[in-house]
Every structure is written in structure tokens, then in C-alpha cells.
């Protein structure tokens, strides 16, 4: 059942406290035509937790994430953010949630500054001076002060990811969702993004769900890790549980051996 207890996230801008939220997946299933992407998934992400969801490509991780923000509707089952049904449009008015998209999804026609200012402007959260203060603070947290006047097309992949996180941060979210935040980044930038996610949790107690292939990220910042394979949740444990997962499929996913004498694609061919 959805949780109704209380914990708080701290706004990086006003210092005020927002009630943190939990996310509950109840028998969630999703099919596209005859193809079942998610099969009867049930688990819960606690308030203030960093939950990392791993799994091979095409296992349904991003689809699951889209259910939390209401971009996909369940074929069966439900997703709750606290007591609110995530599939209802009004939930996004009651709970502030932010999704950091895999490709950033920055507005290409707007500068970095205007990308960040869009949410507070559209929701009339402050006057222009207040918005400027919020935006510059978010850029400062992500070390992006010098990028304010640039357009997304002028940014590197790592900077785009950081701008996407900064844009999410301006929303003062109670729930942050990250879709492959370290994909296509070099190891140092991946580590930087992992540190940012962990810092946001430490300082502002935001509940975070991170969809990733990045084993290092999962092991270093997650409170718990779930592994999705073939649309089913096959593993759920703290990061320490990944050292000896038991299931050979998970072991192969986490520690794939490169076998040049007997490569995988040859096995698939045969």
C-alpha cells in the first residue's frame, strides 16, 4: 500500500523543507500490442532513498520510469507517488517530480539560462530577480555558471547532462528520476555525475530513482539496486548483494567475460 508517513527534502534555494515522497509499484504490467515490456512488477522506493534500476538494454527500465511521471499508462497495476496515482494528471500538480532524460531533452531554441528559468517562469514561482537567483544557484551547484548564455547545441555531452540535472534541480523536486545519466560519458564525467546524484541526496534528501547500466554508479551511490530482465524484477538488494547475486544471468550481466574463442554472437548465430 502507498506510504503516508513523512520525511523532508530541503530546498537548495530557499532552505525550506518539502515533504519527501515514496514510490510504490503495485503489480505493474505494460504491453505494446502483443509484446509485454513489464510483467507484474511490485516494489517500493522509500523516501530519501537512491534506488538504482539496472538491466540489459530493452529490459523495460525506461518504460518503467515513464510510468512514474505519467508519460506511459499501465496496462495493468498501478504506480503510486505517496498516496497519489502516478497515471493521473493532477499528481504532477501535487508532487514536484523531475526527470533527467537520457539525451537531456533540453529545449534547443533556448539558452541554458532560459532552459532552467522556464519552470519557475511558467509556474510564476518568483519575480525575474528571484528566478535569476534560483537559476544561478542551480548552475553554481553544477559548476555551469559560464554556460548560462550558451545554447544546448554548443555544449558537450557531459555538460548537457549537468544542465539537465540543474534544470531538474530548479524545480525543487521531491522526486528525481534519472534515465541513464552516465551513458555516453567518459569515466571521469560518469563519476562526477554519480557524485552529483549522491550529493543531492545527502544535502537535499531528494528521493532518487536512477535507471542505469553503470555498475560503478550502482555500487557506489545506491541504497538499493533492482535488476530488471525480460520485463521482470529478478533481483532487489542493497549494493552489497550484487557481489554474489546467485543467478548466473545477473552475474553475467554484471561481470561479462570477454571470450574471444567462443564469442556471444557466435552462440546466438548457432
Amino acid at each position: 500500500m502507498p506510504d503516508t508517513g513523512t520525511t523532508s527534502t530541503v530546498s537548495p534555494f530557499s532552505g525550506s523543507e518539502n515533504p519527501a515522497v515514496s514510490v510504490t509499484f503495485e503489480n505493474l504490467s505494460k504491453s505494446f500490442g502483443d509484446f509485454a515490456v513489464l510483467k507484474d512488477i511490485s516494489f517500493r522506493v522509500d523516501r530519501g532513498e537512491i534506488f538504482v534500476l539496472m538491466g540489459p538494454s530493452g529490459s523495460g527500465k525506461s518504460v518503467l520510469l515513464k510510468h512514474v511521471v505519467g508519460l506511459e499508462l499501465p496496462s495493468a497495476g498501478r504506480v503510486f507517488i505517496d498516496k497519489y496515482d502516478a497515471s493521473e494528471e493532477t499528481t504532477r500538480e501535487k508532487v514536484r517530480l523531475a526527470l533527467v532524460f537520457q539525451a537531456g531533452a533540453l529545449f534547443n531554441s533556448l539558452t541554458v539560462y532560459d532552459n532552467l528559468a522556464l519552470y519557475p517562469r511558467e509556474h510564476q514561482l518568483a519575480d525575474e530577480a528571484g528566478i535569476r537567483e534560483k537559476v544561478m544557484r542551480a548552475l553554481q551547484i553544477l559548476s555551469l555558471e559560464n554556460a548560462a548564455a550558451k545554447y544546448p547545441s554548443e555544449l558537450s555531452g557531459g555538460m548537457k547532462k549537468r544542465v539537465a540535472i540543474a534544470r531538474a534541480l530548479v524545480m525543487e523536486p521531491q522526486l528525481m528520476l534519472y534515465d541513464e545519466p552516465t551513458s555516453e560519458l567518459d569515466p571521469v564525467m560518469s563519476a562526477t555525475i554519480s557524485e552529483i546524484i549522491a550529493t543531492l541526496k545527502e544535502q537535499y534528501h531528494v528521493t532518487s530513482i536512477v535507471v542505469s547500466h553503470d555498475r560503478d554508479l550502482a555500487l557506489s551511490i545506491a541504497d538499493r539496486v533492482g535488476i530488471l530482465m525480460g520485463g521482470q524484477l529478478v533481483h532487489l538488494s542493497p549494493p552489497a548483494g550484487l557481489r554474489d547475486p546467485g543467478d548466473p544471468r545477473i552475474a553475467d550481466f554484471l561481470h561479462p567475460q570477454i571470450d574471444l574463442k567462443n564469442p556471444r554472437f557466435r552462440k546466438l548465430e548457432s
Partner: peptide
């Protein structure tokens, strides 16, 4: 996904 981003921002 810019439109998806707008929707998640409730815009």
C-alpha cells in the same frame, strides 16, 4: 523528448 520534458514539468 522536449515535449515529454514539458509534460513532466507540468507545462
Amino acid at each position: 523528448q522536449e515535449v515529454d520534458a514539458l509534460e513532466t514539468m507540468n507545462i
